[in-house]
């Protein structure tokens, strides 16, 4: 007697709210953007399906491609600074915080995390003020310790501006890797650490040989979060340098490039179709990065159960 299973409606009913909300807020806009990038306006301002012509323009037209590659290279540098400074410093801070001998660790933890919850408007503006050669306190402070000669208008020089902004962003967000790594370090059982103590694996060698391998999965997660966050970054640059991402586009990243193109800025007219094209390219870059992480890196990282 083959009895048919009843349709399990409750699964559909319980999934529906999440699926509907996610579809309305994420899937529809995503496909809307992808779709928009395939259209453009002709001379008579009528919408026209152009296939991949917008992408040909973006990558082929020297004016567009120059700006795009500049933004991409800047963005890559922005990401690299985070990977080389923010994450190692975050790990180091977490390692120090988890040391049982450190006093006031709750205070340090909070103090380091606070910039993360500050608005980017405040962060951008405050750092602009600090670093300003005219009314900033940085020149005065350097002068006080006799290092005035080291001062430069960091945000105003093409060669320094992007790195300076990246470091400001590092200052703001270093609390996140710190917290994640701190949590990962706390999840290592005390007895494993004590066994290492008994085995003579102490201090830094304990960190390298025992703790670091056990927190690698968390470091992987942090790397991918940093990647996605950096390639979507926009706000700090916009607040500190404006949509033109000066000086001379030295701090222009994909986010600001997209903003200028999509909405227009000063004399430049907004072009939703080219904007959508850039957004699609950004989506593709992030997708490739995330896939690379998921398939090439995460599958090789072991997660440990204690």
């Amino acid at each position: 007697m083959a009895q048919r299973k009843p349709v399990r409606w409750h699964i559909v009913v319980f999934l529906a709210p999440a699926v509907l909300v996610y579809t309305a807020l994420m899937i529809v806009p995503l496909f809307g953007t992808l779709n928009l990038s395939l259209f453009n306006l002709d001379e008579t301002k009528t919408r026209l399906f152009v296939g991949l012509a917008n992408f040909a323009t973006l990558f082929g037209d020297p004016r567009w491609s120059g700006a795009f590659w500049n933004a991409l290279a800047n963005n890559a540098w922005f990401f690299l600074v985070h990977m080389l400074v923010q994450n190692p410093v975050g790990i180091l801070l977490a390692a120090l915080l988890s040391s049982p001998r450190l006093r006031f660790s709750a205070f340090y933890r909070t103090a380091i995390f606070i910039p993360t919850i500050l608005s980017f408007v405040i962060v951008g503006f405050v750092w602009k003020l600090i670093l300003s050669p005219i009314w900033g306190i940085a020149p005065g402070m350097l002068d006080a310790v006799g290092l005035k000669s080291l001062f430069a208008p960091w945000l105003g020089k093409e060669e320094y501006a992007l790195t300076t902004l990246a470091l400001i962003s590092v200052w703001q967000f270093v609390g996140i890797p710190m917290m994640l790594i701190y949590a990962a370090l706390l999840s290592i059982p005390d007895e494993v650490i004590e066994a290492a103590e008994m085995d003579g694996v102490t201090g830094w060698s304990q960190f390298w040989k025992i703790k670091l391998p056990l927190i690698l999965p968390s470091i992987g997660i942090i790397s991918i979060l940093t990647f996605v966050g950096n390639f979507n970054a926009f706000d700090l640059i916009y607040v500190a340098q404006g949509a033109l991402a000066g000086p001379n586009f030295a701090t222009d990243i994909l986010g600001t490039f997209l903003y200028r193109t999509f909405f227009g800025f000063q004399l430049q007219l907004g072009d939703p179709h080219m904007g959508a094209t850039i957004a699609t390219a950004m989506f593709g870059i992030i997708l490739v990065g995330v896939c690379f992480y998921l398939f090439a890196i995460q599958t090789r990282l072991r997660r440990y159960q204690f």
Binding site: P189, E194, M198, Y304, Q305, F306
Partner: peptide, 16 residues
Amino acid sequence: AKREIAMVFQSYALYP
């Protein structure tokens, strides 16, 4: 480590 003692823990405490 310098006491020349080895300890076996209740939870085994192996390096995962």
